[in-house]
Design a protein around this nucleic acid. Structure first.
Lengths: 337, 337
DNA sequence: ATTCGTTGTCGAAGCGCTTCGACATCCTAT
DNA sequence: ATAGGATGTCGAAGCGCTTCGACAACGAAT
């Protein structure tokens, strides 16, 4: 293993000079810098992470806590994780992957040990038990998702309220009057993850303004669950012509079942989904959808943390405005409805 | 921040004693141990990760390199990643998340800086450019997937050759004679990731032994691509009654298209999938399938690394035997075929 | 009673880096 | 000519931990 001292010796300068070349924290003459850089290359030097962390009390690591359970749509989480990792590297940080399993202990461990300089938490619950710890630590931290109270915290999320409103507006504009919302699995609501409720609230209040009727049904993914849910919906509101789906694993079952029942999309019923573009495009009917800006959230989270670690930036909540992309699954409400 | 020295002072012992209590590397009297543990708890002490890494040249971190591209089925990757993270914590390790983006440089950086004690690489290509580096470093490392030559390396993977054979055997036993294989996207083959070819080889050679005809077609996911592929298959081999699908995002399109064409599953055609159980169960027809043992692979990888770091264990290749679960998508070949 | 091995504890020397103050050098403004 | 500020470099002091050798205390074996 090559050390700083060896590089210094090879370049004929002192260790501190090499350190300053590396960090740029003091000005170094061009000739010295080049000589040092040359030595670094020749010797294949890599600074030792532990020593660095110890001396500077900075690990250059950002911790990312992802939920263990997988009832949230996995590809979105993955996309966020990858965006976080990529953006972090861009700023010279690495990413530590934590699962939610340890719960608050993980927060304590990571902040206590100086393993990471900052944290990103995904899948935050409304009254998350990690929040008190986060509030009292001085370690920068960003939540992806919105807890009940955001005071003293930084959060990013899609504006799910606006998303719900946007979906219902789109359907209203097309003349639909009876809307059914296929929600997330009941477990998601019970866990109080917030985003599902926020969608529903936004959707409902806009629907009220527009004079639409809304029927909401949580739904597990898969065909059987969807079949049951759909049957109950048409039973209760036979005139339903608009669907808003907020559960990726219910999308395809819904389309298949509608097809099977002889209801054409978008001629007879319209479907708006809240899902990643890839799902919307790959579905059997190209779906009008509001995308979940996974990459943007991941990138923002990291950039905010980096800013904070650099002494810039402050706490704030960023709600990303939803964008609805019209594809082939929505059209005018049928005349008879 | 509480330090070892403070704990030592609080407990009335020397720093080294506290260290030995923590590591268990020397025997400590019960009374002293308890006193120290008490102090640790009272002060809320967490050992500093950087200092530890520096002094012991062990970071207690395992690096996990996941591919950046997402043409592999994401949930499987995620499942592996979570299994890795969970198992690692069980052994006192944390997981560093690296994307394939940096390529070989990431390997150099991580091994060079002592950031991680060991590495796990996913989505290894046959002639992966990271392999030479891995062979020459003395850092333990496990590949998930099989490169062209495994000498001097440890690898885990599903035995895809046996998987292909198993699928075709199952169909043969049911009387099917003409088999179509819906493969991964062409890009996967071009990248020489190996697993797709291995499946095909195993499948073909077993088919030859059993006297079956096999038609292989790569296929992008999604409906349009699948429709095209399916049309060409029936065009070329109208008597096809058995399908083997190795592309998760082609599964549902295939089922929908078959249904649409009036071909009943499993009465007219049988479908075997190579996919996670969750996909098999949630599909519109519960699929007979060979599962990808994501958790097992992740767990094995970590456990092997831990063993190696403890001075146990050696290089070896573990091919996990496939298991076929019969569900509702396969049945006897129709009489007329 | 002396020697020996055990067991439990301590002190001190680093691990490789960052960073602060000191200092030498050179240039500019008086 | 000289004080004063830049500018570039160095030495040394840690950062908090692990680990090695030393050693005191004690019981067991001679």
């Amino acid at each position: 293993m090559v050390t700083l001292a060896e590089v210094a010796q090879h370049a004929g300068v002192s260790a501190s000079t090499v350190s300053y070349v590396l960090s740029g924290k003091r000005s170094i003459s061009t000739t010295t810098r080049q000589r040092v850089e040359q030595s670094i290359r020749e010797l294949g030097y890599h600074p030792n992470a532990g020593a660095r962390a110890l001396a500077s009390s900075r690990s250059n690591i950002i911790a990312l806590m992802i939920p263990l359970r997988t009832d949230m749509y996995v590809p979105v989480m993955m996309e966020i994780a990858i965006a976080v990792a990529t953006t972090a590297r861009l700023h010279g940080y690495d990413v530590l992957l934590l699962t939610g399993e340890e719960g608050p202990d993980a927060v304590r461990r990571v902040t206590g040990s100086g393993l990471a300089d900052a944290m990103i938490l995904m899948d935050v619950e409304l009254e998350d038990e990690r929040l008190p710890l986060l509030r009292q630590t001085d370690q920068p931290c960003v939540l992806i998702g919105l807890p009940a109270s955001t005071s003293g915290l930084t959060c990013v999320d899609l504006d799910f309220g606006a998303t719900g409103a946007l979906c219902v507006e789109h359907l209203a504009k097309l003349g639909h009057r009876d809307i059914a919302v296929i929600g997330e699995a009941p477990a998601v609501y019970e866990r109080h993850t917030g985003f599902a409720e926020r969608t529903l609230d936004g959707l409902r209040s806009r629907a009220r303004e527009l004079g639409l009727r809304v029927l909401h049904r949580p739904c597990e993914g898969g065909y059987d669950a969807m079949a049951l849910t759909l049957a109950r919906i048409f039973d209760e509101r036979p005139g339903t012509t608009g669907f808003v789906v907020q559960n990726e694993s219910a999308v395809e079952p819904l389309l298949a079942l509608l097809r099977q029942q002889g209801r054409a999309v978008p001629e007879d019923v319209s479907v708006v989904a809240i899902c990643p573009d890839q799902v919307a495009v790959q579905a059997s009917v190209r779906l009008t959808s509001v995308a979940i800006p996974a990459q943007e959230m991941g990138r923002y989270a990291v950039e905010h943390l980096v800013a904070k670690l650099d002494g810039r930036g402050s706490d704030e909540v960023l709600l990303i405005a939803p964008e609805l992309t019209v594809r082939a699954s929505t059209g005018p409400a049928p005349a008879g409805s």
